[in-house]
């Protein structure tokens, strides 16, 4: 009982205090809110260290026991160790080595992965109707193709202006509806956590 009750109680009380600190212009509630947020930040940082420790726990046995993909695991751990050491030992994220690694390794690598994702999405779009023959699929493909054609304006602004105004209006209206749904979901999720209905912090 106490395994889930105490964490739930703490989470509920802290959530109420932070929410009241946001809503009510009471100085003490504001200070409590600021302190609780800082404590959560510290816990988040500690969670980051725990996550790094979990990565080591998974990949180190794979390296020492020479299991499958032990070379990939060794590359991961070496890279993380080097960057961590550089960040700690050098001037921080603005250091020359860090900046060099970022510009020469991280940015090109992630850009390549993003480009690969784009190509994969195009191929999947090409086979969408073969696997799922539905009007919604056809509309989706058509709209996607149209946006790709008009995303970068060509040197024919008159025609492009009409299309862009139409697309802009439709997109704006759709996004507003999505944003309203997102906000409502956020409010509901927050209340469920504050009231203890959902207990993501207790693992249940």
């Amino acid at each position: 009982m106490f395994r889930w009750f105490i964490p739930t109680a703490i989470a509920v009380v802290c959530g109420f205090l932070v929410l009241l600190g946001y809503l009510l212009p009471v100085p003490i509630l504001a200070s409590i809110r600021v302190d609780l947020v800082r404590w959560a930040t510290v816990l988040g940082a500690f969670a980051l260290l725990l996550a790094y420790g979990s990565v080591l726990r998974v990949h180190l046995p794979r390296i020492f026991q020479k299991q499958s993909r032990h070379r990939v695991a060794s590359s991961l751990l070496i890279g993380s160790a080097v960057v961590s050491l550089l960040l700690v030992l050098t001037q921080g994220p603005g250091g020359a080595l860090v900046q060099a690694i970022v510009k020469s390794v991280l940015i090109p690598g992630e850009s390549a992965l993003l480009a690969l994702t784009a190509v994969t999405l195009v191929l999947s779009g090409m086979r969408l109707l073969r696997t799922r023959r539905h009007i919604n699929s056809a509309v989706f493909i058509a709209v996607t193709a149209l946006y790709l054609f008009i995303a970068v304006p060509i040197a024919f602004p008159r025609v492009l202006e009409v299309i862009l105004q139409f697309v802009d209006a439709a997109a704006t209206g759709g996004m507003r509806g999505l944003l309203l749904g997102v906000v409502l979901g956020i409010v509901m999720t927050g209340l469920r956590i504050i009231l203890g209905i959902d207990r993501p912090h207790s693992g249940g």
Binding site: A118, V122, L123, G125, M126, R127, L128, L129, A138, I141, A142, T144, A145, L146, L148, F149
Partner: peptide, 10 residues
């Protein structure tokens, strides 16, 4: 190119 491929696939 991406748009054209999607149309062709459609």
């Amino acid at each position: 190119a991406a748009g054209g491929l999607l149309v062709i696939g459609l």
